[in-house]
């Protein structure tokens, strides 16, 4: 087994464009879950909105920048649709409604035929040519050995991580402001915040919409990186992968989503590659797991991460242990 190659691949994925997109989504979900205590199980719907906003707009002949605007506006509308009916209700309702709404949206996207606006299950391809036309990097491979990106990968990666840095700065600034203090108060005890004159509903709605827009940006980045959107990319598991990242990084911590995304993708990619290699060289007999099962193993891992972290290390990598201990009353 070529362990060096496995490691190099894992690092490449951990710092790659997809990890950047997940980090972006996680910054948004961290605002929901970590700062405000909202249980948004439909984050994938925001990502879908962003991805399809860009893809459909360009596919219909619009420019790429218009696609960004469509995606962002779509996410704002979606956030209001999710939030207005549910944010006054107990936390479980938001969870159930958002997961259901995500599935409804996916069903709608895939219900059309090949000639419909969203092109049904065929999805839309090649809508980001303008983005890659603006690529300042020359053709070639950037990196060392196997840890290297193509000029396209590097371009998406640079834009992606820059975006992550930018939104992290904005969110950290917001979290430090009195606005963020109110969010934390709401997370701790809604009624206490209300008794002190805070309009809890408006704050939750703001948090939901802003985090949702970040989710939409992440969806756009994913779509552009692949030059392809398809409804079945946006299964509910995607939301939970982002949840795993937020909890891994430490809910409510400033750099948690970023560190979480990098570590998450390293672990996932390493397991994936390691298992495939191990099957290939015969360490694991095909009767136990064959290579087609490896994709499923990834989600077994995500599930185990979610459970294990909440049970044994709820503060994640960067959260504060003391805060978690305070939960016990």
């Amino acid at each position: 087994m070529d362990i060096v190659a496995v490691l190099a691949d894992s690092f490449r994925t951990a710092f790659g464009p997809i990890a950047a997109a997940y980090a972006l989504a996680a910054v948004g979900l961290n605002l929901h879950f970590g700062y405000t205590g909202l249980l948004n199980f439909g984050h994938v719907a925001f990502m879908m909105t962003g991805a399809y906003g860009v893809a459909v707009t360009v596919d219909q002949g619009g420019p790429l920048w218009l696609g960004f605007i469509v995606g962002v506006v779509g996410a704002v509308v979606l956030g209001l649709l999710f939030g207005l009916p549910t944010l006054r209700l107990r936390v479980e309702y938001l969870a159930i409604v958002t997961i259901a709404a995500g599935e409804v949206l996916r069903t709608l996207l895939r219900s059309g035929g090949e000639s419909s606006l969203t092109r049904g299950v065929f999805g839309i391809q090649r809508f980001a040519d303008d983005f890659f036309a603006a690529n300042p990097f020359d053709r070639g491979s950037y990196g060392w050995g196997r840890f290297a990106y193509s000029e396209r990968g590097l371009w998406v990666l640079v834009i992606g991580w820059s975006l992550v840095a930018l939104v992290t700065l904005v969110v950290v600034q917001l979290a430090r402001s009195p606005w963020g203090r109110v969010l934390r108060a709401i997370r701790e005890d809604e009624d206490a915040a209300r008794s002190l004159g805070k309009n809890v509903f408006v704050y939750k709605l703001q948090s939901l919409v802003i985090g949702g827009v970040l989710g939409a940006l992440a969806g756009m980045l994913l779509a552009i990186d692949r030059q392809s959107v398809n409804p079945d990319t946006f299964l509910p598991v995607l939301t939970f992968a982002v949840f795993a990242i937020v909890i891994l990084g430490g809910p409510g911590s400033r750099l948690g989503p970023v560190v979480g995304a990098i570590v998450y993708w390293f672990v996932i990619q390493f397991t994936d590659r390691f298992l495939r290699e191990a099957i290939a060289v015969g360490w694991i007999p095909e009767s136990v797991i064959d290579s087609t099962d490896v994709g499923a193993v990834r989600f077994v891992l995500v599930g185990a991460m979610l459970m294990g972290l909440i049970i044994w290390r709820p503060q994640g990598l960067l959260g504060r242990r003391e805060e978690v201990l305070l939960d016990a009353d």
Binding site: L39, E92, F240, A296, F299, V300, V302, G308, I310, P314
Partner: peptide
């Protein structure tokens, strides 16, 4: 005394894990 929200996340993790097993 694990909080309600944490428990929901645990059940989601459990669901994901079992389903893919």
């Amino acid at each position: 005394r694990t909080g309600n929200v944490s428990l929901i996340v645990v059940t989601i993790g459990l669901s994901l894990m079992l389903r893919h097993i």
